[in-house]
Amino acid sequence: MTPMKEDYLKIIFELGGGYKKVSNKEISLGLGIAAGSVTEMITKLTEEGLVSHEPYDGIALTPEGIKHAAELVRKHRLWETFLVDDLHYSMTDVHPEAEILEHNTSDRLATALDAFLNHPKYCPHGGVIPAANGKFDSVSHRLLADAENGETVVIERFLDNHELLTYLNEVGLQLHAKVKVIKHEPFEGPILVECLDNDQQLSISYKASHNIFVNQEPLQD
C-alpha cells in the first residue's frame, strides 16, 4: 500500500470514519488537498474494499479499512508519545518523524514500544492509541467548527497534522483548554473564541476549526 493511501485511511479514521460517514470536504480540509484529488483516491480505496462510498452519502471505512487504519495509527501515535515523553520533542515536531518511523515498525517492535511506554491511551495531541487487537476507546468527533456561538467547549484533540500543530502553537490554543465560542465569521471566516482560564481571545482559522475536536456532550453547569 502506498503512503498516500495510508494517509487517507488515517485521516478517515481520525475523522470518525470507523463509526460514521465523513464528507469529501472534511477529508480535503484535513489533508489540505483539492476535493477532486480526494474523489479520485476514494474511488481507488473503494475498489480495494477499504472504504465504502455512495455518491452524496459520505465515506466510511470498511472492517478491513478499520483494521489497516488502526494498525497505522497505533504505530504512529506510539512513536509520537515516545518522542515527546522520552526524547523531549516538541509536539509540533513529532508528526514528520513518526510518519517515517511507523512504516518501519514491526508488530513486535510496536508491542515492545507500547510496553515500554506503559500502554498509553492517548498521544500528545489527544488522539486515541488503538490496542494491538485493534480495539480503541471512543472519542468525540465533533468539530470546533460545529460549536454554536455562546457555547463553552473543551478542546479534546487536534488532527495529526504538522502544519496545524505549528499553527495552533503560534496562535496559543492548548489541548484541554476550556473556551467559549464568541462568533463564527461569515463566508468561511475565522472563529473567535475566548480562553476561560486567562480571558484571552483567539481567532481560529476556518480550516483549523475543522481540524480541532471538542467535547461531544454539553458541559454541565
Rank of each mutant, 00 (worst) to 15 (best):
residue 41 M to P: 02
residue 42 I to F: 10
residue 42 I to Y: 06
residue 42 I to D: 00
residue 43 T to M: 14
residue 43 T to S: 12
residue 45 L to V: 01
residue 45 L to R: 03
residue 47 E to K: 10
residue 47 E to I: 00
residue 47 E to N: 09
residue 48 E to S: 07
residue 49 G to E: 08
residue 50 L to R: 07
residue 51 V to Q: 01
residue 52 S to M: 13
residue 53 H to C: 11
residue 55 P to L: 15
residue 55 P to D: 11
residue 55 P to W: 15
residue 58 G to C: 11
residue 59 I to S: 02
residue 61 L to H: 04
residue 61 L to K: 03
residue 63 P to F: 13
residue 67 K to A: 05
residue 67 K to S: 03
residue 70 A to Y: 12
residue 72 L to N: 13
residue 75 K to M: 00
residue 75 K to F: 06
residue 75 K to Y: 07
residue 76 H to D: 05
residue 78 L to H: 03
residue 79 W to Y: 06
residue 80 E to F: 05
residue 81 T to S: 07
residue 84 V to E: 08
residue 86 D to A: 05
residue 86 D to F: 01
residue 87 L to N: 11
residue 88 H to K: 15
residue 88 H to D: 08
residue 89 Y to W: 14
residue 92 T to I: 15
residue 93 D to P: 09
residue 93 D to T: 15
residue 93 D to C: 13
residue 94 V to S: 12
residue 94 V to E: 11
residue 95 H to M: 15
residue 95 H to K: 15
residue 97 E to D: 11
residue 98 A to P: 06
residue 99 E to A: 12
residue 99 E to P: 04
residue 102 E to Y: 10
residue 102 E to W: 13
residue 103 H to W: 12
residue 103 H to R: 13
residue 103 H to E: 11
residue 103 H to L: 00
residue 104 N to F: 04
residue 105 T to S: 02
residue 105 T to N: 04
residue 108 R to H: 10
residue 109 L to G: 04
residue 110 A to D: 01
residue 110 A to T: 05
residue 111 T to M: 10
residue 111 T to D: 00
residue 112 A to L: 14
residue 114 D to I: 07
residue 115 A to T: 11
residue 117 L to A: 02
residue 117 L to H: 02
residue 118 N to C: 02
residue 118 N to E: 09
residue 120 P to W: 00
residue 121 K to C: 06
residue 122 Y to Q: 03
residue 122 Y to E: 05
residue 123 C to I: 00
residue 124 P to H: 10
